[in-house]
Amino acid sequence: MIEVRNVTKSFGDLTVLHNISALFEAGKTNLIIGQSGSGKTVLMKSVIGIHQVDEGQILYDGRDIAKMTKKEVAILRREVGMLFQGSALFDSMTVEENVRFPLEMFSDKSKEEWDERVNFCLNRVGLSHAAKLFPSEISGGMQKRAAIARAIVLEPTYLFCDEPNSGLDPKTSLTIDQLIHEITVENNITTIVNTHDMNSVMEIGDKVIFIHKGYKGWEGDKDSIFESGNQDLEDLVFASNLYKKVKKYHNLK
């Protein structure tokens, strides 16, 4: 579980996050949604610890990241997996080597156990056949799956996904969403997904936090999003023709 308490973050004179509080629960996919420039990426980077917040607290299962020593932060990092928008696989390594890399860096287990874990993770994301290929030799969807395998290889407690569906077709996006959700539930991971893809919201949004102009605009789940009563959220949700038709079909206000 990750708790964000009254977080404020500024860059120079510009305040990007205003007094945000949120609770990201374990075993659930927690989505941060919002328009481009709303502050959702800054919020995620603040939670990860890439940005230092000006005010407020970020607690990983009660542990305040700001009060941790360097060593404690290093240990925490090993409990964190991250899926980047562009996958961020290492070009010079094969898919298998990418997945093995965190084990080589941080695991004291034997090579046989590494092999077993790597094979398990590649199987889990359905990439056993592509283990020996380089990232440049596989599709965008496969790269995302390889990045998921790398993110989960150390059995993380916390998983962060930054725009996991960007650049993917709807069918592949659905596969990635389902994979993230299944892994979250199977391993009781606290997963935070940063997205503005409404299909993802409707597919895996166990908990949704809407950020608008740096403020928390709304909080709920995917089932209650159509009845949020928040105009800014509705403007985002019903921005596409598809959802306008859904709204019309269901006769929603």
Binding site: I48, R78, F84, F106
Partner: peptide, 10 residues
Amino acid sequence: EQIDALKIMG
């Protein structure tokens, strides 16, 4: 973002 990935891994 490969360098960010390294940093986040610790």
